[in-house]
Design a protein around this nucleic acid. Structure first.
Length: 863
DNA sequence: GCGGATCAC
DNA sequence: TATGGTGATCCGC
């Protein structure tokens, strides 16, 4: 509840006075009560932690100390000070844009937002304690003269585009973190810059600005550097020196070749172009750069020299809260242990390693050593898309359902715009007491259409309504989210990236394919593999035991790419095997096989792909220590498929089987055996053993309130399909959306729900029997066959089913009062922007029964 | 896979 | 009168 003054321009405020006003405005409100409740929960977490701490023995601490020391020395070796990372952040961005466009606001305290919530405030307003994420009505109490301007995001986006054009000149691979913020790697630019002539480093003052400047500072040429329309009383800005200011209309400045000069130049250009100021931080890694950009805000920059001493000095007094990823709760927990600065963090590492999760304390250790990511992560694919809305109390089920539908419509529109389809639909609700609940359901197929999304969301909502009855659900917010994306395009990225790639061995930069580097070492940093910024180009199988840090390693391998291409040989071998395999079969068989292969093929831009990386790539700030580790860059991962299981599997690029292992050594071995195996198609005995055996799971689960619920029938089929070793992907070759369609290749015995091993596409010609009408289809074309099944389904089965079914799952009671463990969360580095994925969503509309839930699926047809 | 919680902007 | 929306990640089930 209290004021968070961890923001530039908010130093030295009368916190007590401000907090008093905030409290007075809030007290007694439902929001306030909920905040108190949450605070209590955090306090309980802390108590629990303190109890744990009290029970630690000397021996445990000593052991932890040894472990920590070992790790420190490893991390120390991995320290990479060679990159020049810059974090740029526009000053009070939205507010600054509004002030620029409305000069009357210049001298006034103002904020962008509404009476219920502010997005940002200018520096005048910050002096009153008015800041982002504060409701406007409270801000008004703190500062009665505050002017609140409604946001204009289109305008901010346009300005953002302008500054990004400039960013690209310094780092074409820069990573935007939001409209007003980005990380850049200046290393390459600086290298080139050294040989640039002065003319390339000369930038002119814009006429427009000069004119503007004259308005505020008439006849004062010397003040030209202070023309910024964003008025900061005490800007610590470095003052650009005018190298040449002769000639009224042609002022210019020549910038030097140093980092500082380059960054100053970039900021200068931003200001000339947009009339807005930016601040920047220069450091050897992203974590430090981010902190540095805050140092001389607004309109300033700060460089942290790339030496260990400078870094460690800088870290010492740094409050932990300043570090990205340590928020309000983490700060409080650390504070309760007497840790307020990063120096403390370093001193308490052994304790922290015992009280916090591995990911958390590894992150702490990175911070304490001043380590962070030394490369700019690539733009990642989005993993979810959502829309939510806050409103005045809504208690009538009809109204709630109507709103739910609206949200689904909005979401479907967005999904369509980006050509996305997802399997998991999540409903989010917040009641009038600000208690938040989410309810999710994962379908066996991906959806994007309004009806499909709504069918799920509606059920989830109705379940909650029933749950609350006879009391009404009194809502203040509702949201719908889709995740677990699957390619919506039948033919493209996935197949292209692997098949096309196998054939040409070429780089496809157009998609955000990525090479995932996975740290094979289990005990240390297993949660932190490094994701390369490079596009998908080749499979890397490195056995390099050099002492280099991972990023340098990756950069080197990137350079090697053009020279030696050692990885291509691997692929060429794999591809040769594939060709050999295909040649051994008849044309039709090959086709069928190709289809299956495609369905099984790894893809580079799927959600799973990212999942693979993100599961361990929690912390990009881990630069760390790959020196003694072995890496394999897996192209990708089996994409979201119906038959994927909880355990992670990798798809062998040679035999295209799922290899049930997360150990890349094992996976490597498997591939080696496949490559060495004369009988290319058949897995060796060993590799067969790697395949997951039938994973019979208990079909009955228990809900939170203890009521058993029957697991959806679909999962049974999923498991069966999984056990068959061949998983058909959705959205591939017309095999879309309905689990029934997964039953494609049924051999003579007609065993339902299974596929006859991989041989079905190598040995005998597959017999396609429609699972609905049971008539053998005389076609090899799976698309044709699939169409037939679709027709059968629509014409016959839907009638039989008699409309959609309800969930067998029982509503579950919800408790929000659990006290969680000390798990803390790590910073994310991926962009939050809405990525454009595909220009043309080309998938035909789904023909399946629109609102059919996950039940009454495949089993029905075989009874 | 689900749900709650934390974090960033 | 009145305390946001979007996306991601982590942890414990």
């Amino acid at each position: 509840m209290a004021l968070n003054d961890n923001k530039a321009g908010m130093e030295g405020l009368d916190r007590d006075k401000i907090n008093k006003i905030i409290m007075e405005s809030s007290k007694g409100s439902r929001f306030y009560e909920n905040e108190m409740k949450r605070e209590q929960q955090v306090n309980q977490r802390i108590e629990k932690m303190m109890l744990q701490k009290a029970q630690l023995t000397e021996q445990q601490l000593n052991k932890a100390q040894a472990q920590v020391e070992k790790m420190v020395s490893k991390l120390e070796k991995s320290r990479d000070l060679s990159r020049v990372i810059v974090h740029v952040d526009m000053d009070a961005f939205y507010a600054a844009v509004e002030m620029r466009d409305c000069p009357e606001l210049k001298d006034k305290p103002m904020a962008v937002g509404s009476t219920s919530m502010l997005s940002t405030s200018n520096y005048h307003a910050r002096k009153y304690g008015v800041r982002a994420a504060m409701p406007g009505f409270i801000a008004k109490k703190l500062c009665p003269n505050l002017v609140i301007v409604p946001p204009n995001f289109d305008k901010y986006r346009a300005v953002s585009d302008e500054i990004r054009e400039i960013f690209a000149d310094y780092d074409p691979h820069f990573q935007p973190m939001s409209l007003d913020e980005a990380y850049l790697d200046f290393t390459d630019h600086l290298e080139q810059r050294q040989s640039w002539p002065e003319s390339s480093r000369t930038h002119h003052f814009s006429q427009c600005i000069a004119t503007d400047e004259k308005q505020s500072q008439p006849h004062e040429e010397a003040e030209v550097t202070d023309f910024s329309p964003v008025l900061f009383d005490d800007s610590p800005a470095s003052t650009p020196c005018l190298s040449g200011s002769e000639g009224a209309g042609d002022k210019f400045e020549v910038f030097g070749t140093s980092v500082e000069e380059a960054v100053r130049e970039m900021r200068f250009r931003i200001e000339q172009k947009t009339m807005l100021t930016a601040s920047a931080g220069i450091a050897p890694n992203t974590m430090l750069a981010k902190v540095c950009s805050d140092k001389n805000k607004p309109n300033g920059q700060y460089r942290l020299p790339p030496t260990r001493e400078a870094v460690m000095d800088f870290i010492q007094e740094l409050p932990v809260r300043k570090v990205c990823g340590i928020g309000k709760v983490s700060e409080k927990m650390l504070n309760s242990l007497g840790i307020t600065t990063c120096a403390h963090l370093g001193q308490q590492m052994s304790l922290l390693s015992l009280l916090f999760s591995e990911t958390a304390w590894h992150h702490f250790m990175q911070i304490a050593l001043g380590l962070g990511s030394t490369f700019i992560p690539r733009h990642e694919e989005r993993k979810s898309m959502s829309t939510e809305r806050t409103f005045k109390e809504l208690s009538k089920p009809e109204e709630q359902l109507l709103l739910c539908r609206e949200l689904c419509e909005d979401l479907a529109k967005d999904m369509k715009n980006e050509g996305l389809k997802g399997k998991t639909v999540t409903l989010k609700i917040k009641n009038i007491n600000f208690e938040v609940k989410t309810r999710a359901q994962t379908l066996p197929y991906a959806v994007a259409a309004v009806e499909d999304i709504f069918a799920v969301a509606k059920d989830l909502l109705q379940m909650e309504i029933e749950n609350e009855s006879p009391q009404p659900l009194r809502l203040r917010l509702m949201g719908v989210r889709i995740s677990a994306f699957v390619s919506v395009d039948d033919k493209t990225p996935m197949q292209r990236s692997i098949i096309g790639f196998l054939q040409s061995g070429k780089t496809d930069c157009s998609h955000s394919s990525q090479i995932m580097h996975r740290n094979l070492e289990k005990e240390h940093l297993s949660e932190h593999p490094i994701q390369t910024p490079q596009p998908l180009a080749y499979l890397v199988v490195q056995n390099d035991h050099s002492q280099e840090a991972c990023q340098s390693e990756q950069r080197q391998s990137d350079k090697r790419q053009t020279d030696e291409k050692p990885q291509q040989s691997f692929f060429q071998r794999a591809h040769a095997k594939r060709l050999q395999l295909l040649a051994a079969n008849s044309n039709t068989q090959s086709e069928a096989c190709e289809d299956i292969s495609k369905m099984n093929s790894v893809r580079s831009d799927s959600k799973e792909d990212i999942k693979l990386s993100s599961q361990s790539n929690k912390n990009n700030s881990v630069v760390s220590d790959l020196s003694e580790n072995e890496y394999i860059s897996v192209l990708a991962h089996p994409s979201t498929s119906d038959c994927e299981t909880q355990t992670q599997s990798l798809v062998c690029p040679v035999c295209f089987r799922h290899v049930k292992t997360t150990d890349l050594n094992n996976f490597n071995s498997h591939i080696d055996r496949c490559l060495d195996d004369d009988d290319a198609g058949k897995p060796s005995k060993d590799s067969a053993a790697e395949l997951n055996p039938e994973n019979q799971k208990n079909k009955v689960e228990h809900t939170q309130n203890g009521a058993p619920r029957v697991k959806k029938e679909q999962s049974v089929n999923d498991e069966e399909l999984e056990s068959s070793k061949i998983c058909l992907q959705e959205g591939q070759h017309g095999l879309k959306d309905d689990s029934v369609q997964k039953v494609l290749l049924i051999e003579g015995d007609n065993k339902p729900g299974t596929l006859q091993e991989h041989q079905s596409c190598r040995g005998k010609s597959p017999v396609l029997v429609c699972p609905v009408c049971q008539v053998t289809q005389h076609t090899d074309d799976l698309t044709v066959f699939n169409r037939h099944v679709d027709l059968c389904l629509n014409q016959e089965v839907l009638h039989e089913l008699g409309g959609r079914t309800t969930f067998t799952r029982k509503p579950s009671a919800v408790k929000n009062s659990q006290v969680k463990d000390s798990g803390l969360q790590l910073p994310r580095q991926a962009s939050k922007g809405k990525n454009k994925r595909r220009d043309t969503p080309s998938s035909p509309p789904s023909k399946k029964a629109k609102s059919t839930g996950p039940h009454n699926t495949i089993d029905k047809f075989f009874r």
